[in-house]
């Protein structure tokens, strides 16, 4: 039986997220599948073209409404549910956007959700992590149920460009509820690479000791063209803002190079980085668990080593 997969696009109003391209790549591994991306936005003109250019996408559906200027699950879910009829699968990224939205869609469709899909074995069989990644399960969706899924983006490379999908306006359009209203989002914009998608990440832990000391990492990150991350301990201590948190309850990332500085390596942190290609650990405790998974370990005082690294690189 051929599969028909609907992918809910994530974007910031101007640019489609890399997570969307990774969802497309994940969906493309389902055998014999036709892929459709749906873009809900206040203005879909540019976004729909970006989606249409993703390799493997056959159709892009657009939903334009002022309410979609900001992603509200309560507004998007009934719209997607109304469009989902012809599809065997509905996928979204396992980002806070998708984690918020997809279960609401699944419940409206009265169907099952498979969270954090890390591999597809068949149209009904998926692999996903449980217990913070300490076990991997293989699950089978039964009785031909429609599958709602969130895609663990760290497990997939983004779909390439070069597609030329047909773009059409979705129908029917659903009037969103008024009970949920967007107020604001903290604009933590910076010129640094995005933590979720950066090829290099420099990350700091509690050993930095203060928000001032944490600034030391920004210098090194800028020299390397890297994004900055933080352990939960560093975020809880107020050294770094919450959106920098890497780990089970923060961001799960897969950079080419991850440099953990003053991070001991709690399980929940390691869960967030174990798909990184190369892990470097700098810590003064030679028994820190981070050294168990690091490709390169350097035991020493970060306040000496980080300036040395920067000098040698600069």
């Amino acid at each position: 039986m051929s599969q028909n997969i609907l992918i809910v696009a994530e974007h910031d109003g101007r640019t489609l997220s890399v997570a969307t391209a990774k969802c497309v790549a994940c969906a493309a591994t389902v055998p014999d599948a036709a892929l459709t991306v749906v873009v809900c936005a206040a203005d879909t003109a540019t976004l729909s073209q970006q989606a249409a250019a993703l390799a493997g996408v056959g159709t892009v559906l657009t939903v334009e409404h002022p309410v979609h200027a900001h992603p509200l699950a309560a507004a998007i879910a009934p719209q997607i549910a109304a469009l989902a009829g012809p599809y065997t699968h509905v996928f979204g990224p396992s980002s806070t956007f998708g984690k918020d939205l997809m279960p609401r869609i699944a419940a409206l469709l009265k169907t099952v959700q498979v969270s954090d899909i890390m591999a597809i074995e068949s149209a009904t069989r998926f692999r996903r992590p449980i217990y913070a990644g300490n076990a991997i399960i293989t699950v089978e969706v039964l009785d031909g149920a429609q599958v709602v899924g969130t895609v663990r983006t760290a497990s997939f490379q983004p779909a390439a460009a070069g597609g030329s999908a047909r773009i059409e306006a979705a129908s029917p359009l659903i009037e969103p509820p008024s009970h949920t209203r967007f107020v604001s989002v903290s604009a933590a914009r910076s010129d640094r690479p995005d933590l979720q998608t950066a090829a290099r990440v420099v990350s700091g832990g509690r050993a930095l000791g203060s928000a001032e000391n944490f600034q030391l990492l920004y210098g090194l990150a800028d020299t390397l063209g890297a994004a900055v991350g933080a352990s939960r301990a560093a975020v809880d201590a107020g050294y770094a803002p919450n959106e920098l948190q890497v780990g089970q309850t923060g961001k799960i990332i897969a950079p080419e190079l991850y440099i953990a500085i003053g991070i001991s390596g709690a399980i929940q942190h390691l869960t967030g980085i174990k798909d990184a290609r190369t892990i470097v650990a700098i810590n003064k405790d030679p028994d820190a668990p981070i050294f168990e998974i690091a490709d390169f370990g350097l035991v020493g005082d970060l306040f000496e080593i980080v300036p040395q690294l920067q000098k040698l690189l600069g």
């Binding site: 806070t96 918020d100 009970h179 604001s184 989002v185 903290s186 919450n242």
Partner: peptide, 11 residues
Amino acid sequence: EVDAGLETLEI
């Protein structure tokens, strides 16, 4: 707590 930072909703 969202990926972009902190978002506020009124419900």
